[in-house]
Design a protein around this nucleic acid. Structure first.
Length: 495
RNA sequence: GGGGGCGUAGCUCAGCCGGUAGAGCAGCGGCCUUUUAAGCCGUAGGUCGCAGGUUCGAGUCCUGCCGCCCUCACCA
C-alpha cells in the first residue's frame, strides 16, 4: 500500500481492464433520486427502478450480499442475489465499498421490512482506488476533513447538510433583496486603490498594464459609484480578501454582502436588516427564531434591541471620556491594551471592543458611532462628532455594519486626506480621487449595509468555527516550501 | 507572535513507571440467502509527523523543526 491507494483495488481495476471492462465508463444508466423513492415506498413495491450513487460497506452472505447506495438525496439498501445476477456474480468482488455504481432492480423489502432494491443489473460507474473512511466514525481528524473536504462531504452527511443550508441562506438573502427591487451587480475584485474598510490587502500585479493591484477588502466604493449612476438599489454578494490572522471567526477570504439604497438612511437600513432576519427565520429556520450558538440560545426574530455606542462605552467605562485621549489612555493601560503608536480614535475604540463587545449577546444594534472611526458615514446633524451608523452584534460577534452614506464630497476628501496622512498598513497610500469625483456629481442620500455571510451562516447553523462553513478554508500547504525547508531536507536531492 | 493540546496501520483509536508496536473497521482467503456497526475462522498491513539527544534499550524522556486544533493577541 502506498499513499493511501490500495493495491488490491488497483489489481481489481487492472483485472477489469484485462477482461475488457471499462472501470470508468463515460455513461451508465442514470438513476432517479433515491429521496423520491422513500416517502411512499410501500406503494412502490414491485416497481423496477434505477438508482446511482456511492456504494457503502458490503455485507456478504455467500449467495447474497447487501450494501447501501447513497446519492445526494438519500440512501437505499441494495440486495445482490447470486441467482438473479449470474453474470455479475462471477466478478462480484471487483465492485466493492466506495465504488460508484448504477443499479437497476425491483423495489421490495427484506424479512425485517427494510426497503431494498433487489438488483437485476449492476454497472460500475467509477472505480474508487481509495477506501472510504470507517463507516461508524466517518472522517474525524479535523485537518484531514479540511484538506480532503471531498472525503468529508461524502463520509459525513451532516457536513453536506451544513453546506446545503449555507446555499439556502445565500439564496434567501438574494430573494429578499430582489423582492425589494434591488439589482445584483458585480464590481472589481482587482482594485488599483483599496478602500471601503480598514484591513491589510493582498497585493498582486498585472503584467500587461505593469500595474500594482490589490484584491479588494470591500466592494463599497464601487457600489456607491453605482448609486451616483442612478441605479438606486444595488447589492453584491462576493468574496473579499483581508491579509490578516486566521481564527475560528476569520478566514483570509470570506463572503460579504453589501447593499446600497438611495433615498434611505440608516434607520431605514435597520428596518431592512430586521426584515432580512425575519425572512431568514421564516425560510431557513422554518419560523423558529431561536438558534443555539456556543451553547447559548439567541432569538433572531426581529425587532432587535438598540443601544448607542457612547452609552455602552460609558456604562462599561465610567468616568472615561471617549473623546478625551488622556482618559482613554489611562483606561487602556488599566485594561492592559497595547497603546504604543495607536491613534487616539483607534485606542478609544479598542477600549470599547475590550470592554463592551463581549457583553453584546444580542441580537443588538449598536448605533451612532464616532466619526473618527467611521470615515465613510454621514455625521449626525445635531452632533458632528458622531455618525449615523450602526453595527449588528450577536453572540459578541460583529455580523453587520451599516450607515447613512457620506455624500458630501468635500467632507469625504478631507477624511480621506486625514487617513492618508496617518497612513498605516491598513489604509491606502493615496486618496481615491475618482470616488470623490463621483460624489461631486451628486449622490442621493443613501443607506448602505455590509453583512458577513460566513458569520451569518455560522449563526444560523450553530457552527462555531468559520472553517466548518467554508468549503475549502485556507491551510498551510504541506509540501516542502523552498523558503522554509523541513529539517533534514538538506540531504534531499535538489531539483 | 504568546500559552495549551494533539500527530501511532487506509479510517477510528489503545499503548501504564522506558523493555520485541496492538484492537476494531476497511482489505485479502474461507463459511453462510434477510443483514443493516452482520457473524465466525484465518491472513496481510507500520518511516509511531521529521531530525537530533539521553539511555544497554525510546512510540514513551529531552531539544529543535513541521502540521493541525483550542485560546490570547492581531483583525471594523
Amino acid at each position: 500500500m502506498t499513499d493511501g491507494i490500495a493495491n488490491d483495488r488497483l489489481q481489481k481495476l487492472q483485472a477489469m481492464r484485462a477482461a475488457g471492462q471499462d472501470p470508468f465508463p463515460a455513461r451508465v444508466a442514470r438513476g432517479q433520486p433515491i429521496g423520491e423513492l422513500l416517502p411512499d415506498f410501500a406503494a412502490r413495491i414491485g416497481q423496477v427502478v434505477t438508482i446511482a450513487g456511492r456504494l457503502g460497506v458490503v455485507r456478504d452472505f455467500g449467495k447474497l450480499r447487501f450494501a447501501h447506495v447513497a446519492d445526494r438525496t438519500g440512501s437505499l439498501q441494495v440486495g445482490f442475489e447470486r441467482d438473479r445476477l449470474p453474470a455479475f456474480w462471477q466478478n462480484r468482488k471487483q465492485v466493492e465499498g466506495n465504488d460508484l455504481v448504477s443499479v437497476t432492480g425491483t423495489l421490495g423489502t427484506t424479512q425485517k421490512g427494510e426497503p431494498t432494491l433487489w438488483a437485476s443489473t449492476v454497472e460500475l460507474a467509477a472505480k474508487a482506488l481509495r477506501a472510504a473512511p470507517e463507516k461508524w466514525h466517518g472522517l474525524v481528524d479535523t485537518e484531514q476533513r479540511y484538506r480532503m473536504r471531498y472525503v468529508d462531504l461524502f463520509a459525513n452527511p451532516d457536513v453536506r447538510q451544513a453546506f446545503a443550508t449555507r446555499s439556502k441562506i445565500v439564496r434567501e438573502v438574494r430573494h429578499y433583496f430582489d423582492s425589494l427591487g434591488y439589482l445584483e451587480v458585480e464590481t472589481p475584485i482587482l482594485q488599483p486603490i483599496f478602500g471601503g474598510a480598514s484591513a491589510r490587502p493582498f497585493v498582486t500585479h498585472h503584467n500587461a498594464l505593469d500595474m500594482q493591484l490589490y484584491l479588494r477588502i470591500a466592494p463599497e466604493l464601487y457600489l456607491k459609484r453605482l448609486i451616483v449612476g442612478g441605479m438606486e438599489r444595488v447589492y453584491e454578494i462576493g468574496r473579499v480578501f483581508r491579509n490578516e490572522g486566521i481564527s475560528t471567526r476569520h478566514n483570509p477570504e470570506f463572503t460579504m454582502l453589501e447593499s446600497y439604497e438611495a433615498w434611505a438612511d440608516y434607520r431605514d437600513i435597520m428596518a431592512r436588516v430586521e426584515g432580512l432576519f425575519g425572512h431568514l427565520v421564516t425560510t431557513v429556520l422554518g419560523g423558529k427564531g431561536v438558534v443555539t450558538f456556543r451553547d447559548k440560545p439567541y432569538d433572531l426574530k426581529p425587532p432587535f434591541q438598540k443601544a448607542r455606542y457612547l452609552d455602552l462605552f460609558a456604562q462599561q467605562n465610567p468616568g472615561v471620556d471617549w473623546f478625551d485621549h488622556a482618559s482613554c489612555l489611562r483606561r487602556a493601560r488599566e485594561l492592559g491594551l497595547e497603546t504604543d503608536g495607536i491613534a487616539p480614535s483607534k485606542l478609544a475604540n479598542d477600549v470599547f471592543e475590550a470592554t463592551v463587545e463581549d457583553t453584546l449577546q444580542g441580537p443588538i444594534f449598536v448605533h451612532d458611532y464616532p466619526v473618527a472611526i467611521s470615515p465613510l458615514a454621514k455625521r449626525m446633524a445635531d452632533d458632528p462628532r458622531v455618525t449615523e451608523r450602526f453595527e449588528l452584534f450577536v453572540a459578541g460577534m460583529e455580523l453587520g455594519n451599516a450607515f447613512s452614506e457620506l455624500n458630501d464630497p468635500i467632507d469625504q476628501e478631507q477624511r480621506f486626506t486625514e487617513q492618508v496622512a496617518h497612513k498605516d498598513d491598513e489604509t491606502p497610500g493615496e486618496v481615491d480621487v475618482d470616488y470623490v469625483t463621483a460624489l461631486e456629481f451628486g449622490m442621493p442620500p443613501a443607506g448602505g449595509l455590509g453583512i458577513g455571510i460566513d458569520r451569518l451562516c455560522m449563526l444560523l447553523t450553530g457552527t462555531t468555527s468559520i472553517r466548518d462553513i467554508v468549503l475549502f478554508p485556507l491551510l498551510r500547504r504541506l509540501e516542502a516550501n523552498p523558503e522554509a525547508p523541513p529539517a533534514g531536507a538538506a540531504d534531499a536531492p535538489q531539483p
